[in-house]
Amino acid sequence: MISRQQMMAGKIFKDKLNRILVLSPLPIETQHNAHDGAHIIKAKTDVYLDIGHKSVCEGTENLALMINIVNVGFGGALLLSYFWLEMRGGTYYLLYWLFGTLIGTHFLYFQSIIRNYFSLKQFKFIRFNRQRREVALPFTDTQDFVIIPWEKLYAWAGTSMMITESTAIPLSTLTITMASPTDATDFKGRYEVAGGEEINCIMQWECIRAFMEDGPDACPEPSKVNTLTEYKAARRQMRKELGPWQWIKQKLIDWLHYSYFAHWLSDWHEKKLPKVTIPENIKRWSEPIPEDQWQQPSDEFMEANFLAHDFYDVGGHLGDVNMPVYDPRKKVTFNQQEKKPDEP
């Protein structure tokens, strides 16, 4: 088992099926581009960066497709039953069954949407304040925020091998957490983002690191991929480029996914949730402060970055086996692969 005292940025823990690449504490430069592949950046100002849930648009569209497949399938079954019912003078039952199915499936659809909304209200944002060099985390038992120093945040890219009959597939997850206040070796709360590959997790993390260390311009803007405005613009462009049959097919796909509603709902969530998930004390903490009061990087953090830069300058890469890792207790250590990682 890995205790948090063993974790420093750049260090790796590896066995046959698992690998953990530590990204923080002392979040050194990664030498990778910042890329918000999971679309978790929700807000960015000169002071703070919010990361939160993925867009609800995709989930809403997938759920709509499932219920419409049921509706279309049931409608087809009713059509096959038409002649059998017509001979008995009871074709009006078709309407009862059809309306009952549509009402039932859509009741479940909207019930799921409402339930997910209240679930997202409990899943609060993580806010990074670059002027104070602090992070507000919703990892308390009461779901209030706790504020910790940026340099003491724990983060890693964890990769596990999914074994099938014919191949092994690596699956990576970015994990952000904090030290447990009651256990000297454990963590408290977790925020996880599926990245697919380790490099995607590193680039996702680099969005946060670059914002905190290099400023807002170094971090991508909040994603507009699933906004209603983007959806309308994309469909207008398709209408010009697609032929009549392709356009009809696209409209049918959009209808089966309730795409217009899904994008509208995503916009509504993005506007509504920050107002109900971020309390007043965190909003006050997020206000700008005079530049002469900005917190500065620690000496340990500066030394860790200098050590990493020297390694990068001679061709090294983050997470290499021979990468020297700055440990404030030992000053410099080296990666060791014999350690057994926890499940990320």
Rank of each mutant, 00 (worst) to 15 (best):
Q122F: 05
D141R: 09
T142C: 05
F125L: 11
I126E: 10
R130Q: 00
R133W: 06
Y117S: 12
I147D: 09
F145A: 08
R132I: 05
K121T: 14
S119M: 11
F118V: 11
R127Q: 11
F118D: 13
T142Q: 14
L120Q: 08
Q143Y: 14
D141W: 00
R127P: 05
F139Y: 11
T142Y: 10
D144Q: 13
Q131I: 01
F145E: 00
K124E: 04
F118A: 12
A136I: 00
S119E: 11
I114M: 07
P138G: 03
L137W: 06
L137I: 02
V135A: 01
E134K: 12
T142M: 08
I147V: 15
I126K: 10
T140F: 09
A136G: 03
V135E: 03
I114A: 15
R115M: 07
F125V: 07
R133T: 03
R127A: 05
Q122A: 15
Q143E: 10
R127V: 11
R130M: 06
V135F: 08
I147K: 10
R115Q: 00
I126C: 11
F145Q: 08
S119V: 05
L137D: 01
N129A: 00
I126F: 09
N116L: 12
F145N: 03
R127F: 06
Q122W: 05
A136V: 02
E134S: 12
A136K: 00
Q122C: 09
N116P: 08
T140D: 07
Q143G: 06
D141H: 02
T142F: 08
D141G: 03
T142K: 15
R132E: 11
F139S: 07
I114W: 14
R130Y: 02
Y117P: 05
F145D: 03
F128N: 02
I114Y: 13
V135S: 06
V135T: 07
R133N: 08
Q143L: 15
N129Y: 09
F125P: 00
D141V: 01
E134Y: 09
I114D: 06
Q122P: 03
E134H: 10
F118C: 12
I126G: 10
L120M: 12
E134M: 13
R133M: 14
I147R: 10
V146L: 13
F125H: 12
N129D: 08
F128R: 10
R115V: 02
T140K: 13
Q122E: 13
R130K: 09
F145R: 01
Q131F: 01
R127Y: 09
F118K: 14
Q131P: 02
I147E: 06
K121H: 04
R127L: 14
F123R: 15
F123A: 14
N129K: 00
R133Y: 04
F139Q: 05
T140G: 04
Y117D: 09
F125T: 11
L137S: 01
R130T: 01
F125N: 13
Y117V: 12
T140Q: 13
I114L: 15
K124L: 06
V146K: 04
